[in-house]
Amino acid sequence: MTDASPFNQLLPVGSKGKLSGGWWGILALIVTEGSLFGYLLFAYFYLAAQTEQQWPPEGLPVLLMPAVNTAILLASSACVWISEHCIRRRQIYWSIAAMILAIALGICFVMIQLTEWDRKTYDMTSSLYGSLYFTITGFHLCHVIIGLVVLLLLLIWMALGYFDDRRYAAVTIGGVYWHFVDVVWLFVFTTLYIFPYL
């Protein structure tokens, strides 16, 4: 290897965007978490297909609040996307504002979801449907809360001036996790709220 010239190029150092290990790691994590929700919904359909019980126990689910909540979560996802976009354009204050909005919307989702839980006349132990409903939405809510912690950390790190257009891999990585949590909700929503109508 006397001719080293092909190896003479300028290379980025450390965690740069999608070149970072973390980006690949989060994709792998999303694959495995996606499978987890896949199996959870498989369990739902497997049991629903064979049940002889009233399904869901309260009759067809009311769609309004869950639909609004879905919109809220998607809006939150959009905010995270905007936040990342702003960092790339070096508009750090806009980025922080968008992130705050994203977190606020996420918290709204959690609150509405908790009131939804509260409105149910059954719990995890009262019927098979109850077990499924609370386990599936519980798993998702856990992910939302973890996602919110991640967003909060990103916000703190942004406020501390850790990121600019040169290094912001954490925002990309945390952001895609949040998008994943939101996409999973679409599947959960379809399964629990739309599917009984079909």
């Binding site: 070096r90 508009q91 850790y162 990121f163 600019d164 040169r166 290094r167």
Partner: peptide, 15 residues
Amino acid sequence: AQRVPSAAHSHGEAH
């Protein structure tokens, strides 16, 4: 290099 280095060495924070 997960975050931007301190300003002393580079040309200041981007924003």
